[in-house]
Each structure stands twice: as structure tokens, then as C-alpha cells.
Design a protein around this nucleic acid. Structure first.
Length: 263
DNA sequence: ACATTGACCTGAGAGC
DNA sequence: TGCTCTCAGGTCAATG
């Protein structure tokens, strides 16, 4: 699932559930999801800590601890978090969990183990070391910088939008949505785009992501004018009712309307 | 510098 | 019902 809107949903969820509770124990069910830290070191450094705030950059979520360090969470393709009590059904595929002194558990779940969890001293340093681009919805990330980061690149627009080093947060689904909203073919290359088109793409990117957040990243809750609303359902273009086509672009399945996006 | 491919993992759903 | 095959919203490394 998790692209920027999904991760923002997780951040808000964490923000409203798992903060200010003392951690009693940490269970590591599958150490494969830990990155850059060993099992025992991870558990020890979290014992007795509380989470004070949830942050996000691109597809990464950060839980600030009361010692000012951060647990970072990446969700891969199948990750999510759940806060629950023993009376509630535990999620499947728990990879690690925090048990709080209020008897609630915060579980990090990931069916395929593409996600990762670790500890970092500061978010800025983490972003630098991961070489992440600016968060797609960051208030500081304006149109000029967007154009600057895309202009002069070669290759396809979709690839650049999904490249976390260029812009952080966009994946396969929302790059398709941005392309659809601008009626651009998924294989269009950056060299074909005028500056005015890039300006419109920037605005569309922000709108698409903002709308998706408002819809809680749930395709069913999105406006019918959005491609994402149709890609799992009727498979019809919301504009012209043509069948949505699926082609492979940059190794990913790309959905588009062959009639509206025929440039 | 970029595209392509395969690898990493696991399970849901389709088709037989 | 049970088996096999295909596919999945991410990322990385190797290769062309």
C-alpha cells in the first residue's frame, strides 16, 4: 500500500493512539525488518521510553522518543501499524511490537518483509543518508524547486516522480494518478515537457496527494474523477468511459486511459 | 545517466 | 477441495 497518503494516515493514527505511553517491552518477531541495529540493542534502547510525536517524510514515518531519538518505520508494499488490546484480534504478520504499560500493544505488521524499522538520532541526518528528495507535500517544497529537480533529467516522467531521491513520497499508484489528471501518457519522457506543463504537474501532484489524504488513502472514498477510484473496480475511465489499460512502465504495472492519455 | 531485469519475501486470488 | 500460477501500491544491485 504505502505511498505518501497511506503513510500520512499511519502518522495520524499513531499520533492519536500510541503517544505518551511508556513501553514495557519490545517484541521482535522477525529481525529481518530491523535495519542498522541488532535485536537486543533495539529492545534495550526502547525499554521505558515513550513516543512523543509522529513525523513523516515521504514514505517514512518517525516516532520521536522522549530521549529525542527516533524510531523510523518504512512500510514496504504491505506494511501498516495497529494499536490494540488483548481483547481485540491481533493483526497477522506482526514483525515487531511494543507493549505499553497501559496494556495496549502497537504492532508493526508487514506481510512481505520489504519494510524496515530502525533508530536514528535525527530526521535531517536520516534524510541525508538515505539521499531522499524533499517531501512531495512539504510547505517549503515549491514549484521552482520542483521544476529545477525535474528539468535536465532524462528518462520518463513517471520514473522521476517515483524516484525517492528526486521527490519523496510518490509511488506507482499516485504517479499514475498524476499522469491521468494531466492526461499524459505513462511513458512520456521529461524532454517532451514544457516548463508550463511542469508547473501544472506540480500543482496536480499537490492536489492529488492532498485529496488522497482527505480520502484516507482509500480508493473507494476518492472522487469518481480520480483514476485510483476506478483502477480496482469497474476499470473504466471516469472521463470517457473507455477501458483502463495496463501496461508495464519502468518495471511496474501502469494503469491509464488509452483514449485520454494518448500523447 | 538511464532502462531493464531479477532478486528480495509472502500470501491472496484466479484458473483448472 | 486442492493445486498451480500470477500478481502485488517498494527498493536495490547488476547489467546493457
Amino acid at each position: 500500500m504505502p505511498e505518501l497518503p497511506d503513510v500520512e494516515k499511519f502518522r495520524l493514527y499513531l499520533q492519536s493512539t500510541a503517544l505518551h505511553q511508556q513501553i514495557r517491552t519490545t517484541s521482535i518477531v522477525d529481525a529481518a525488518v530491523l535495519k542498522g541495529i541488532g535485536e537486543s540493542h533495539f529492545s534495550e534502547s526502547l525499554r521505558g521510553r515513550t513516543f512523543e510525536k509522529a513525523h513523516r517524510h515521504g514514505k517514512f514515518c518517525f516516532l520521536r522518543q522522549d530521549d529525542q531519538r527516533f524510531v523510523f518505520l518504512h512500510f514496504g508494499m504491505t506494511g501498516f501499524v495497529k494499536y490494540y488490546t488483548k481483547e481485540m484480534t491481533a493483526p497477522e504478520h506482526i514483525r515487531l511490537s511494543f507493549e505499553f504499560t497501559n496494556d495496549y500493544t502497537l504492532a508493526y505488521n508487514c506481510q512481505r518483509k520489504f519494510g524496515q524499522v530502525g533508530i536514528t538520532n535525527d530526521i535531517e541526518g536520516f534524510i541525508d543518508s538515505e539521499e531522499l528528495g524533499p517531501d512531495a507535500l512539504d510547505g517549503e517544497f515549491g514549484e521552482d524547486e520542483f521544476i529545477q529537480r525535474l528539468q535536465g533529467r532524462r528518462g520518463m516522467l513517471k520514473t522521476a516522480l517515483m524516484n525517492q531521491q528526486v521527490i519523496a513520497g510518490i509511488g506507482n499508484i499516485y504517479s499514475d494518478e498524476i499522469l491521468f489528471q494531466q492526461r499524459l501518457h505513462p511513458k512520456i519522457s521529461l524532454g517532451q515537457l514544457k516548463k508550463t506543463t511542469l508547473q501544472r504537474i506540480y500543482t496536480t501532484m499537490r492536489e492529488v496527494l492532498t485529496k488522497a489524504i482527505h480520502a484516507e488513502a482509500d480508493p473507494a472514498k476518492m472522487a469518481p474523477s480520480m483514476l485510483t477510484h476506478h483502477r480496482y473496480g469497474d476499470g473504466k475511465c471516469p472521463s470517457c468511459k473507455a477501458d483502463i489499460e495496463k501496461i508495464e512502465v519502468a518495471g511496474r504495472r501502469s494503469c491509464y486511459c488509452p483514449s485520454c492519455q494518448d500523447n
